[in-house]
Design a protein around this nucleic acid. Structure first.
Lengths: 110, 110
DNA sequence: AATTTGCGCAAGCATTTAATTGCGCATATA
DNA sequence: TATATGCGCAATTAAATGCTTGCGCAAATT
């Protein structure tokens, strides 16, 4: 179960995205994560392993527990890939900056 | 070969990302695309089908040819998912980050 | 010291996926 | 009209993926 293993592939799985969401704010150990899913602890453990191999989370061993914490900078790879196409779906704006100004303006409007 | 079929999964494949890159600027027919890859025409045709099913490209039939053109607005789904984590990897001054901090400060206010 | 708990390893299994090959049907072209 | 071209539709195969189960080790608890 180890072939092409990149960030794009890692985030393709919904369970892995959920895991990332859970370890974004504070570290969680593997069992704590596993309890939140319907799949077995082993399945979650494997997802964690994959995410770790991709550099999307770090693992801090503490006694017999392994605390997982999100490491999201690798997502910039995906973000950059997508950014180049933003102009195609948001044709009147051709940069993130302008896009941001747009939503900011919308939001600020009372 | 039709199960979970979402945008995250569609862009997980490098060949499909390459195809999207090729049809971003001007439409290409299936054979023209296939020539650029080492895999068979059928393989490319299948990737095109998947991308089409995900709404990531449109197909315009013209005679016996099918012109594929990128439709990137579905990528915003991925972009939005990623955006929520940008603050974790991009700690430098960034308009989006500032924006996020701004609303976060508002929210955090007790 | 004995037991429980957290968790990785590894084997096994069902699906899914990517890719190939052969076929046939339209639409072009000679 | 005969032939070439573009391309989808299976059917098939090999590999990858997600998941489970059983095992065992090391750290914590009793």
């Amino acid at each position: 179960m180890d072939a092409r293993r990149d960030v794009f592939q890692a985030i393709a799985d919904p369970t892995r995205r959920a895991i990332l969401g859970m370890v974004a704010n504070q570290p969680q150990n593997v069992n704590a994560l596993a309890e939140k899913f319907d799949v077995s602890r082993q399945a979650v453990s494997l997802h964690v392993k994959i995410l770790h191999e991709c550099g999307l989370l770090t693992i801090r061993q503490q006694g017999r527990e392994r605390y997982c914490e999100g490491r999201f900078d690798k997502l910039s790879e995906v973000a950059e890939w997508i950014e180049q196409y933003r102009k195609f779906w948001n044709s009147r704006l051709d940069s993130l900056e302008q896009y941001l100004n747009q939503i900011q303006t919308k939001t600020d409007k009372p």
